[in-house]
């Protein structure tokens, strides 16, 4: 049968934009969640995008110029300044009449939750017209796995060694950003690219500050097999450890409600960083996850769509 036959040609329905803006040959570690995230982000936002990237894994992943992989202009800036750099870019673009160019700040959790929080808060308060994506791999991975305020309870890092593992919940960056009353804040997960891309495309159409908290596993820092990135990322949401939701003009919407959430232990078990945890600690983490989920449900009830 001929290859072009109308009867047999299968139509593949693509759920993601087809064009690849980010090229292969970047220098991320095997199984890197953050590199997937960028690939999807650029598919969503297109060529007319400019980025500000502070010190973080992605300052390296892109590759040394001219061998850069991102395919759009990047301003590499100082650690604490992703949001401020992007603020300058977006205001200049606006003065130049280039309102069709999207400005995106793309920073890690250390550069967002910790050292970059002041700059982020400033941009949010001014409602600067930019998209800020934090790709959250829950520690300073670029300097070799030191804890950040996004590192979850129980995790090992080199500055929270096993005997003194991280205690306390990770900072809730979403609530901080929602409290700034910005037009759009959302969580996303590299395991659910359609959702992430939809959110970026929505953010692109909104004027003002948009914030996306992207969950991005790191096999190197989490000590998991490099082929488990997607599985672990899925489990993070399927166990309610990392819920997927958005807050648009103050209105909460949980995008993925899991009917029968899996136990958190299933999510923890694949990751060497949690290997030392006792059953009691795992039960505690489960109880905190449940509490956070209940709280989110209540927020949606109170501030969801009428």
């Amino acid at each position: 049968m001929s290859a072009g036959s109308q009867d047999t040609k299968r139509k593949i329905k693509l759920t993601l934009p087809e064009e690849e803006i980010m090229s292969p040959g970047h220098v991320a570690c095997l199984g890197c969640g953050a590199s997937l995230g960028m690939r999807y982000a650029l598919k969503a936002l297109g060529h007319k995008t400019m980025m500000a990237i502070p010190a973080c894994c992605w300052a390296v992943i892109d590759g040394p110029f001219p061998y850069s992989a991102a395919g759009v202009p990047i301003h590499h800036s100082a650690f604490e300044t992703a949001a401020s750099t992007a603020a300058g870019m977006t205001h200049a673009l606006s003065q130049l009449g280039q309102d069709d160019v999207t400005t995106m700040a793309w920073a890690g959790d250390g550069g967002t939750f910790d050292i970059g929080l002041q700059a982020l808060s400033g941009a949010a308060e001014r409602n600067d017209n930019l998209i800020y994506v934090v790709y959250d791999n829950e520690a300073y991975m670029n300097t070799g796995i030191q804890r950040s305020s996004s590192t979850p309870h129980g995790a090992w890092t080199t500055t929270t060694p096993v005997n003194h593992y991280r205690k306390g919940q990770k900072k809730n960056i979403m609530e901080i950003m929602v409290a700034h009353r910005i037009p759009y804040a959302a969580t996303a997960n590299v395991a659910f690219p359609e959702d992430f891309i939809r959110k970026l495309q929505k953010a692109k159409e909104i004027k003002g500050m948009k914030f996306i908290h992207l969950y991005a596993p790191c096999p190197t820092g989490w000590k998991h097999a490099t082929d488990k990135t997607i599985e672990i990322a899925k489990l993070a949401t399927q166990t309610n450890t990392f819920p997927i939701y958005e807050v648009e003009n103050g209105v909460y919407k949980i995008n993925r409600k899991i009917k029968n959430p899996k136990p958190v232990a299933e999510y923890l078990q694949y990751q060497g960083r949690f290997r030392h945890l006792s059953d009691d600690e795992v039960a505690y983490i489960q109880s905190e996850v449940d509490k956070n989920w209940e709280r989110l449900l209540k927020l949606e009830q109170a501030f969801g769509e009428e």
């Binding site: 650690f79 050292i115 070799g144 500055t159 060694p161 005997n163």
Partner: peptide, 30 residues
């Protein structure tokens, strides 16, 4: 706060200083 090439200093403090009754805190920035 982590920064190459000094990070190994704080990594060692994180392990060592509790043993002599001291405290290491990883801060949010420099």
């Amino acid at each position: 706060y982590p920064i190459t090439p000094s990070t190994a200093v704080v990594e060692r403090f994180a392990r060592r200083i509790p043993r002599v009754g001291g405290v290491f805190i990883q801060m949010e920035d420099e």
